[in-house]
Design a protein around this nucleic acid. Structure first.
Lengths: 116, 116
DNA sequence: AATAGTGGTAACCTATTGGTAACTAACAAA
DNA sequence: TTTGTTAGTTACCAATAGGTTACCACTATT
């Protein structure tokens, strides 16, 4: 609660998604079903493969996403929001709305994810 | 918008508050008016004075908080949410709610800031 | 035979974050 | 006279985050 800073719920949330990449990765997974590693890589041009796979691993360990591996050659790996991950949607939406709110009008977008 | 990752509103938001300390500092400023540096320091036991003053400076540069200095000895400095900072309340509340939602029941709190 | 495609990992490097201790100025209290 | 007080800053160092490049395994294609 607000009166007990050392045990604040915001601290807990920050522990899960309080860094540069995780909210952005999660938003990429809102647009429906499973997304391949390579597609994420292309969509997020600024992130390196190493950091992306590292962040995906942490998100999976934290139970926010699910990793599907297919025993094919060349390999195929897909990522998907977990049920717990979906509970973050209000947080991601609030972040999206605020970013939109402070953006110059010509850079504004709309929130229309497929996952609800 | 979700279709233009390189220009996503979430990226913008993360640029302002996507780190370990800023959301936590901002939440400390929701409980009404101006708060002294020393009080913030005590409330957030885990942050060092150096990092706290650094983060406060960035928040001020980004226009999210206002810094009031009084020409007294010993010095007095107080921090306050700006109007722009107050527009972040829905984001902070969503983060708070999610952290609360995943917390064990005995660690849950209530959201009752004085600033609205 | 060489190349492309996939989802990584390893080695290496830089940049940012964070921590500690010492120092400042000016006044008040002991 | 010494100490305490406040909100820092500076110097120095360690730890973490993030980035770059190269490489792998295996198959299909050229």
């Amino acid at each position: 609660m607000l009166q007990n800073p050392e045990n604040c719920a915001v601290v807990r949330t920050v522990g899960y998604i309080g860094n540069k990449w995780k909210p952005i990765i999660l938003v990429r997974l809102l647009n429906g079903g499973k997304v391949r590693f390579g597609k994420l890589c292309v969509q997020m041009a600024d992130i390196s493969r190493k950091i992306l796979s590292q962040q995906l691993k942490e998100l999976e360990e934290d139970g926010l996403i699910i990793r599907h591996t297919y025993m094919e050659k060349p390999p195929r790996v897909e990522y998907e929001l977990s049920e717990l991950g979906k509970t973050l949607i209000p947080v991601l939406k609030a972040m999206y709305d605020w970013g939109n709110h402070i953006a110059p009008p010509e850079q504004r977008g709309t929130w229309d994810p497929i996952v609800r």
